[in-house]
């Protein structure tokens, strides 16, 4: 059991690191596109790692399925949101000639 716990902690810790990296990227990177890049990649991988870590702690397969569903939904919405933000930014650039 202890091995599983350690593995969980390692996975969740790695996921958290991705979140931190994503947040720093959001704050420090220069424009919308690069920030999006940092944010979505970090969020998706980070959340995936956390879900994996938590899956090792569940009591049954149904809970694992639920956790995976949460991840899948988050992936879907964040990638769509990413596209929408990028699309809006491109349009704004075309209209004003610079990044807004």
């Amino acid at each position: 059991m202890a091995v599983l716990d350690w593995l969980s902690m390692a996975l969740v810790g790695a996921g958290t690191l991705f979140f931190i990296a994503g947040s720093i990227g959001l704050l420090r990177l220069p424009d919308v596109m690069t920030r999006l890049h940092a944010l979505t990649k970090a969020d998706n991988v980070g959340l995936g790692l956390i879900v994996l870590g938590l899956s090792l702690q569940t009591s049954g397969p149904m809970e694992v399925v639920r956790l995976l569903l949460v991840w899948a939904l988050a992936l879907l919405t964040s990638s769509c949101a990413c596209y929408l933000v990028a699309h809006a930014t491109l349009q704004a650039r075309r209209e004003t000639g610079h990044d807004s």
């Binding site: 939904l73 879907l76 919405t77 769509c80 929408l84 699309h87």
Partner: peptide, 16 residues
């Protein structure tokens, strides 16, 4: 209309 990606999102999310 907001485009194909949002349409796709709606098609998946709305039933959910």
């Amino acid at each position: 209309p907001a485009g194909p990606i949002l349409d796709l999102l709606v098609r998946i999310l709305l039933p959910l």
